[in-house]
């Protein structure tokens, strides 16, 4: 098979620089019946997130006496990929749901709502690479929109290694034919990155490269954080304008 060149003339296949994100569009509060919701586009990824709760736990045995439980469901629509995906949870989406939930759990103040559940549903309508990062970004905006107490905002972005260089926010070709894909999620508080809440790696990089990847991801995350803030502010801006 012929080797696919992923970097041509110092640029990536879609014309981006190495440290450039795909175009992002975020809209908060898109679903009427959910407590909080968000529609997000990250390049060709299109995802919608819905948050319900805190609400009663069903089935009852999952209830925790001293804190709320967090449930996260990542799901891909059958039409989200080129070849029809069998609907329903599979091995991959169960795993993504678990790691994403664990990325959000330390940020949500669960102890404020004993015996309740916070449900997060994220549906991938169109998938490109990095759909888990897009979903986390959308879920985080939806959580804020639902008025759920949190320590900060979660922002997620991936870094990939393709043709020997580290690139930010890989798209499909880079993910499929690259050497490594490293999704990150950060807790951002007061405009500063406080901690890493998710780190996965597919492929191989050196320790030095991982350090560089982290720096690159931090830069990208700050940009996404600004967009997330803007999206939430935009929904409430009318109220602010009148007040001023």
């Amino acid at each position: 098979m012929e080797e696919i060149k992923l970097i041509v003339d110092g640029k990536r296949l879609d014309g981006r620089g190495f440290e450039e994100l795909r175009p992002i569009k975020i809209e908060a509060g898109v679903l009427k019946r959910a407590d909080g919701s968000c529609y997000l586009e990250m390049g060709k990824n299109k995802v919608v997130a819905a948050v319900y709760g805190p609400r009663e736990v069903h089935p009852k045995h999952l209830e925790e006496p001293d804190r709320a439980i967090v449930r996260y469901r990542y799901s891909m629509a059958p039409f989200s990929v080129e070849e029809r995906k069998r609907p329903g949870p599979d091995r991959r989406s169960i795993e993504i749901s678990k790691v994403s939930r664990e990325a959000l759990e330390p940020v949500i103040m669960k102890e404020l709502f004993p015996r309740s559940a916070i449900d997060i549903f994220v549906e991938v309508l169109q998938a490109d690479a990095g759909s888990r990062t897009a979903c986390l970004n959308a879920a985080s905006v939806a959580l804020v929109d639902a008025g759920i107490p949190m320590k900060g905002i979660v922002t997620s972005v991936a870094v990939a290694k393709v043709d020997g260089v580290l690139v930010l926010d890989p798209m499909k070709e880079e993910d499929n034919y690259g050497e490594a894909d490293i999704p990150f999620a950060f807790l951002i508080r007061n405009g500063k990155i406080e901690s890493i809440t998710l780190l996965q790696m597919d492929g191989r990089v050196t320790a030095e490269e991982l350090r560089k990847a982290l720096e690159l991801a931090k830069k990208g995350a700050m940009e996404i954080y600004k967009l997330q803030r803007e999206a939430i502010m935009k929904k409430y801006v009318k109220e602010e304008e009148v007040m001023e």
């Binding site: 804020v144 639902a146 949190m150």
Partner: peptide, 21 residues
């Protein structure tokens, strides 16, 4: 810790929530 309006006085800071159960 929540999305809301900042109400800051000399004696205290509170957030008036905009959403929530």
């Amino acid at each position: 810790r929540v999305l809301g309006l900042l109400d800051k006085t000399d004696t205290g800071v509170r957030i008036i929530p905009l959403k929530g159960r």
